[in-house]
Design a protein around this nucleic acid. Sequence first.
DNA 1: GGCTGGAGGCATATTACGTCA
DNA 2: GGTGACGTAATATGCCTCCAG
Length: 274
Amino acid sequence: MGLDDVHSTGLCLGLGIGCLVKQESFSQSDHQQQKKKKKSLLKHDPFFPFLSLGSSHDMHQSFVKFDSGKVRGESIDLHQRQASSHCLSAVSSFSNSSVKRERDLGGEEVELERVSCRVSDEDEEGSPRKKLRLSKEQAAILEDSFKEHSTLNPKLKQALAEQLNLRPRQVEVWFQNRRARTKLKQTEVDCELLKKCCETLKEENKRLHKELQELKSLKLTASYYMQLPAATMTMCPSCEKVDNGDEGPSASNTFTIGQKPHFFSPFTHPSAAC
DNA sequence: GGCTGGAGGCATATTACGTCA
DNA sequence: GGTGACGTAATATGCCTCCAG
């Protein structure tokens, strides 16, 4: 458990109303601020050493009302409040059964209820981590926004958070994770590309080795024929046509092994000689 | 102008939860 | 119903930049 958890949980549970105010500011401000504040809190907050995780149900309940009514926004109606209370009463958080039950009910309203319930659940309950599942609509809007800008500015973050009924921190986290996924995918694509490139190079290397061997063997053959009288035989080292000397050196498709044998550069195609 | 500490943002690794086969 | 794999939200941590003092 990190210090963030201490702030999001222990402060509420152990420090009473003064800490509720602190919690409110946390829920509205960026979570990163908490991260930065934690150091200063460690240094300067006189209450910090007295933090306790001892639960107080009454305090919890009062905070629930405070949070759902003030922090979560004015649009929360009684129905949602009840939903929030329902979440809090289910201390074991979102079990699969509850999710399934909501699924069975179906509909956007239920989905929103589920989301807001989970979010408030995380804020208020103090259990380590309540993972919400973004609805398709939320994900689509975030995706659209991501396509336009892969990074967030504070305005956009706030706007998206309000539009999607999420906390700015959640929007920020979504973008961070989305960037990470994009990068991971791109890395995989690059990896595949490099693999193919490697295979191609291997094939090319193999082919060149083979060609080199052929050229070496041809060189040996040529050396062998060089030991014979030059006038007796002519041969093209490329196509290995041997001429008995009836035709002159100027004849086509023949090669004369004479005082200056015609060897090829390994970088030129062998057939170029013919 | 250089230094320093705080704040914010991002990348990355990891954890933990939800879903599905 | 139990379980492992997978996707992903959430957390932890470190680094960088900006800015005020």
